[in-house]
Design a binder for these strands. Structure first.
Ligand SMILES: [Zn+2]
Ligand SMILES: [Zn+2]
Ligand SMILES: [Zn+2]
Ligand SMILES: [Zn+2]
Lengths: 161, 161
DNA sequence: GGCGGCAGTGATACACTGTAACAAACCCGC
DNA sequence: GCGGGTTTGTTACAGTGTATCACTGCCGCC
């Protein structure tokens, strides 16, 4: 689902995402530290993919600087837990809105107009990929599926305007 | 097809790739300059994806330095002509072994053991992707499909060893 | 209480990847 | 030869990510 500005309730708002992150950490015996929480919040609040340096800047304030390296560490942790995803084509990060299994075939739909990123999963797509890989004799470990284009909302807006 | 070390004949060897590049440029009225040729050759010779800085170093010699920026320009040109591809997950480049249409749905199979990269295209995969996008109301412009794993040759080698 | 290990964080420096800007060289038709 | 477009050289810089070490806070143990 596409994230519109000011309308994030489709797949859970920021509070839900934070609650899920906290629950995941607790049930796995991991620490959901203040820094990790702040990074998770920054990623969840933004309507579009955030760069690590953007997050660092956002979390910094006069007298309290958060270095990018700290953000990267928090992001690495959150990615390992499946709470955020990295968008390779943008060098940026988004919150996982679905809570799917790790390694599950998910394709990211990146709107080049509004910058929003949506996750879509599909049995059919996954089947097609599996068969293509099998035919090539290739054993997959991890896949990156990213499509850039225009989301429905932006396309309507363009046709109307 | 996976490129093994010392065995690049599956989809055309280096000479074939260079000949194709030259032909493409000639028929489009574009210049296949010495630099572009050298970059194409460097990418085609390597059995695995090459970084721009690797290429720059490879082409440099005592007394003749090739700056990375020149390599990037040559790579941009070659990519526009569909002669090389960029592997987003590696920040590296490979020669196109197939000569397919630009924008055609091709998935890159990246072997994490030997580093070789293969291109596979599949009607089924493309159908699955198209339907997934249509269902999400998303209009694609460009897609990145990359799978990391183990190629058949490396998997056999591991089982045998 | 003191002590030692461990995870997390801060801080600096650095490596890697890519681009902007401008000058020089080159090519080609006039 | 000249003018204009293309290609390349050169420098500097921005953006992205990692290595390293020191420090802190916490918890279990003596
Ligand atoms: Zn997700
Ligand atoms: Zn949009
Ligand atoms: Zn190709
Ligand atoms: Zn391999």
């Amino acid at each position: 689902m596409h994230r519109h500005e000011g309308h994030d309730a489709c797949h859970g708002d920021v509070a839900d995402m934070l609650a899920r992150a906290e629950a995941v950490c607790r049930e796995r015996g991991l620490q959901f530290t203040p820094l990790r929480r702040e990074v998770m919040e920054a990623v969840a609040e933004a309507g579009k993919a955030q760069g690590a340096y953007d997050i660092a800047e956002k979390l910094s304030a006069p007298g309290k600087r958060v270095a990018p390296v700290s953000v990267y560490r928090a992001l690495d942790f959150l990615m390992q837990q499946g709470l955020v995803h990295r968008i390779a084509s943008r060098n940026a990060f988004i919150p996982c809105a679905h809570g799917h299994a790790p390694g599950e075939g998910v394709v990211f739909l990146i709107c080049r107009t509004c910058g929003g990123v949506d996750e879509a999963s599909s049995e059919m797509l996954e089947d097609g990929l599996d068969r293509t890989l099998k035919r090539a004799g290739f054993t997959p470990a991890h896949s990156i599926l990213e499509v850039e284009g225009d989301c429905g909302a932006c396309r309507e807006r363009q046709q109307a305007g």
